[in-house]
Design a protein around this nucleic acid. Structure first.
Lengths: 117, 117
DNA sequence: ATTACATATCGACAGATGTCAATATGACGT
DNA sequence: ACGTCATATTGACATCTGTCGATATGTAAT
């Protein structure tokens, strides 16, 4: 067979490919979902703000001012980041504290090296 | 000063921050633009197809079938990838050959480590 | 219970995005 | 010059996205 083969959705790690193999559609969708969460400037800034915040965590009220967005909009962005697995949410009293998930992005590194290069 | 400071747009490399510094809005926008190019499953598959193709390059006609999209749509996606700097385009005869830019994504690694962690 | 405050959800809206069919552009062979 | 083929552009369309104001939900203090 001369055509490049399509990898089946990987079970070990994320999107690990043999050389010459093409990423599986399901893996492509998964990757795209992660990148989509990072595709908005405000969300990048929110991640950065949380990561550099005291104790590595921040609540919505800490974030609205620096990004100059309304409270509902920031809440909406945070929901996206949580659903993408890039951030965790912990309710403490009236506040919701968010933390960046370590290595959430690095987890996709295999794709970047084995698929893209 | 107790508040976290905002980094000015970095001139050396991409988005290098001192600890406790927040990414500059311009850098956030730049990063988001790159991630946006990667936020579509079809584009991820196109990148993978090109990278794994014979000689590391492919033309539009090689790509339409595997991704099951029309020629104009593939052309549109390729334009996005070129504009994001993730892929190069070289016209050779009637064909346009695309190649993945090595380290185009890795170039953003400083953000992933210095901003997100 | 009532009040105050932090966050989430809803409804609405403008603008962006992915897709295709039709057409234009451009390069080659005859 | 003409026809053919690969790619790009245009126009149209449905859907998704980011944003806000208004409102609902939930938690804690009084």
């Amino acid at each position: 067979m001369t055509s490049t083969s399509v990898a089946s959705t990987s079970t070990v790690g994320c999107c690990v490919l043999s050389p010459g193999e093409v990423i599986a559609p399901a893996d492509a969708e998964h990757l795209a979902r992660t990148f989509k969460a990072l595709s908005d400037p405000s969300r990048i800034r929110l991640l950065s703000l949380i990561a550099s915040a005291d104790g590595g965590e921040a609540c919505i009220c800490d974030l609205t001012d620096p990004v100059a967005l309304s409270q509902p909009t920031v809440s909406h962005h945070m929901k996206q980041l949580v659903e993408a697995g890039l951030v965790t949410r912990e309710q403490r009293g009236r506040w919701a504290y968010f933390r960046v998930v370590p290595d959430a992005i690095e987890r996709h590194a295999p794709f970047l090296t084995s698929t893209i290069r």
